[in-house]
Amino acid sequence: MTKRRWLDVACVGALAALALMTWQIFDPSVWPVMVAMSLGQVLGTVSLAAFAYVVVVDFRGQLRAGRESFGKKHEGDSQSATDKPPIPPLTSGPQSGS
C-alpha cells in the first residue's frame, strides 16, 4: 500500500472515529457512550498510528535518499581526486637570489 493510500485510510478512519465520539453528545445513552469510549477511540488511535507509520517511513526514505546522494557526491569527489594529476614532488631547484 502506498503512503498516500495509508493516509487516506487514516483520514477516513479518523473521520469515522470522530463521528462515533460525537454521537454520544447528542444521544447520551448506553450504546453511544460505550461505542464512543471503545470503538471510537480504538479507531482514532489506529488512524494516528497509521499516520505515524507514514511519517516514519517517509523520514526513513528521506534519510536513505540523503545518504545515497551524499555517498554519490563523496564517491564523485574521491573519483575526481584520483583523476587529478599527482602533485609533483618538491625539487631542490636553484635558489633565487643566492
Binding site: A10, A17, L18, M21, Q41, G44, F51
Partner: peptide, 9 residues
C-alpha cells in the same frame, strides 16, 4: 489526526 482528535476524545 492527532492533536484535535485527542482533544475531542
Amino acid at each position: 489526526l492527532g492533536v484535535f482528535p485527542i482533544g475531542a476524545a
